[in-house]
Nucleic acid binder design. Structure first.
Lengths: 225, 225
DNA sequence: GCAAAAGTGTTTGGGATACACCCATGC
DNA sequence: GCATGGGTGTATCCCAAACACTTTTGC
């Protein structure tokens, strides 16, 4: 593409905030930077988004290469979050970052060219660039989405118990919920259905397994909580 | 900025969906394209976003130049909407567009290097690029924001009557609301305050003027409607 | 039998909805 | 005095919140 006047676009990058629950805690995937700038610091997985690829395509190949995670196979949900574009956010020069937020369940396949680790979203280390802001924004968005969509699906197995569902809500919202009210409200939304299976999880009464009625993102007419 | 490997970013553009009410109708500002591609068709105001400027800075100068509108002075509100990045959206080559949604009140200053006109959002002409999608997305976002923020502020004068406020809600949501319930609910939100002034708008009882308590965007704890 | 999580109902208060008439002004 | 929009109250229903005990299993 060429232009009548001289035109130079900023660098375009992509970054992903990837969530999953580990031990009932909301975790985010971070990589340790091997090079300057911010060498040795923690950062979100991300990289350059070149001409000829959509940002999500670029993100998919970067995430696969750097942290060994397949965003279609390993994630249950991903959406565009926001585009961060302040001039000084990258010390090397002006870089505009299109960010994504994704959710998964029991992801263990992490391991690529960069060292990566899941960190509790409530106890993050110092982060490179403006990545702390990006994570804060993603967490807020996810909280909001729990209330009016079936986004909790992203953090659960295909079949799950009501207690596991409640754990997702509690971990993301950061507060405890009443078990009876939670079940009543959620079952009223007609978002999930009972399956015939049960979960035998230990030395206690087995729990019924439920599944979401729809595999795709849904917006609720009346919102939850 | 230079790179270890060859890296070429896509073109970065900005586009704005600007709303205002005219005759109780929600209108969006469109320009008529003077050149190929899509010569003669209607499009959103927008243009290239160069290195060294944030997208909102680039948008401000483009909108000022092309349609003669000052986004700080003429608009009451603007926010980033979404980044559209499909490869084929611009026939000239891969162009990623960071889009914004803005609202104003009684804007009459339109007139720049491009012919521009306000169009009812419910009766749009054929639009260039993917701009119809962008407008649909903006309208949805604005609808949603009316429910849980003070975004209606953006489409009103600093002081307004409750009927004018209700008109904003009806125009954006696209349905009629009950006057008594609307007033009760809105006054309960403690988002607006009565002023001592009244509006004498014609051959009928004068209406009390109200003002928003806060000039800046606010999110409500309990949502409206 | 005991530890551990699953499962279950009722009461109360507040907001949502539906609905119709009088009031203040200009002309 | 009449046309025009401004302004007001009540009854009903449903949802949200608070709250504690019994059930089923593994060991």
């Amino acid at each position: 593409m060429h232009y009548k006047q001289a035109y130079k676009p900023p660098t375009l990058t992509v970054d992903a905030v990837l969530f999953q629950l580990v031990d009932d805690q909301l975790m985010v995937l971070l990589t340790r930077r091997a090079e300057e700038p911010f060498k040795g610091e923690w950062a979100l997985p991300g990289g350059y988004s070149p001409e000829g690829q959509t940002t999500i395509q670029a993100l998919a190949s970067i995430v696969k290469r750097k942290v060994g995670l397949d965003i279609t196979a390993d994630l249950r949900y991903i959406e565009q979050l926001y585009t961060f574009d302040t001039i000084a956010r990258d010390p090397r020069g002006h870089a505009v970052s299109v960010t994504y937020m994704g959710c998964g369940y029991a992801i263990t396949t992490v391991g690529g060219s960069q060292f990566a680790e899941w960190h509790p979203v409530d106890q993050l280390p110092t982060l490179a660039y403006d990545h702390a802001d990006i994570i804060a924004y993603a967490r807020e968005r996810l909280s909001a989405k729990l209330a009016y969509t079936n986004a909790a699906m992203g953090l659960l197995d295909k079949k799950f118990t009501l207690s596991q569902l409640q754990t997702v809500y509690e971990a993301v919202l950061g507060r405890e919920l009443d078990k009876r009210n939670f079940r009543k409200k959620f079952l009223n939304l007609e978002l999930i259905r009972e399956t015939s299976e049960v979960w035998k999880g230990g030395a206690h009464r087995p729990a019924k397994l439920y599944a979401f009625n729809s595999d795709s993102p849904e917006t609720l007419s009346r919102s939850f909580d």
